[in-house]
Design a protein around this nucleic acid. Structure first.
Lengths: 143, 143
DNA sequence: GTTCCTGCAAATAATTTGCATACCT
DNA sequence: AGGTATGCAAATTATTTGCAGGAAC
């Protein structure tokens, strides 16, 4: 299946019209392994020559998040939201507080914890938001 | 030790002058078990008759965070930051997406995970931010 | 007295909204 | 054609900053 067909399918499933801007956002998110802010996304799109406005970026991300196409989260100490494509293999990120790069980590240690919360506290867990921060390999070297 | 002495000590340790506003913020944070936003804090202070401005609240929270007196975090889907007193017993929160109340949970499941990250990825973990969300006991009943 | 803190108002940053036009189906 | 999406500019919300006066040490 071609990439663009994949995007078309995602949009159809979400009952969203296929537009150039939506395709472009899906493509950029797909290439960026890590979460991106609305503004970064906007800059990347402009750089690629896609005609789009920042408010459209926000509106599309909102729509995507509503349909479960993207996931929004926040890094500690950063006041803007970041977005990434929803991905079957649930995972987390490492944020380097020095270079600010983001590294994905496979897997998630929270399954047991969530089960425990459900049992002990009678709280139905819908999901969680976990960000781990510290110093990456490269930044450690520099010091 | 009196409560106010405790606050005085916290401020002294942080090299911060003892002012009415700082005492009041420590007190409000101490009473709220859960994290609060700057604005909520401001409203609670005003209600108590404390003369303070919103920018002072922000400035104090900033200073406190710098000194490690408070911890700032973000709840998913909420664009404003929340703050709580730093607490020796590291813990997390449950956010009910219905009533928006926040419940503390003792303990943290991430120690092993962090050790694993340090070993496998050569990334020095400084900390993490975890928020779990879902439906609390009471809100489940209502449906 | 000196330095730090606070209040006010204005600035900035992040996000949202109204409305007219343009584009999908 | 009909309804939805987009762009632009203006509105809102969250947070920060400059500066003058006030309080802590």
């Amino acid at each position: 299946m071609k990439q663009s067909d994949k995007y078309a399918e995602i949009l159809k499933k979400g009952d969203l019209r296929a537009t150039k801007q939506r395709y472009a956002i899906l493509e950029v998110l797909d290439c960026n392994g890590a979460p991106v802010s609305a503004e970064d996304l906007y800059i990347q799109l402009k750089r690629k020559g896609i005609p789009i406005s920042l408010s459209t970026v926000y509106r599309i991300l909102d729509a995507f998040q509503e349909k479960g196409i993207v996931v929004r989260s926040n890094f500690p100490d950063v006041s803007k939201a970041v977005y990434e494509l929803f991905c079957e293999e649930h995972h987390h990120h490492l944020l380097c507080v020095d270079c600010r790069r983001v590294f994905p980590v496979e897997g998630c240690p929270l399954e047991d914890y969530e089960r425990l919360i459900e049992e002990r506290l009678n709280f139905t867990v819908k999901g969680h938001n976990l960000e781990v921060y510290g110093h990456c390999k490269d930044c450690k070297k520099k010091t």
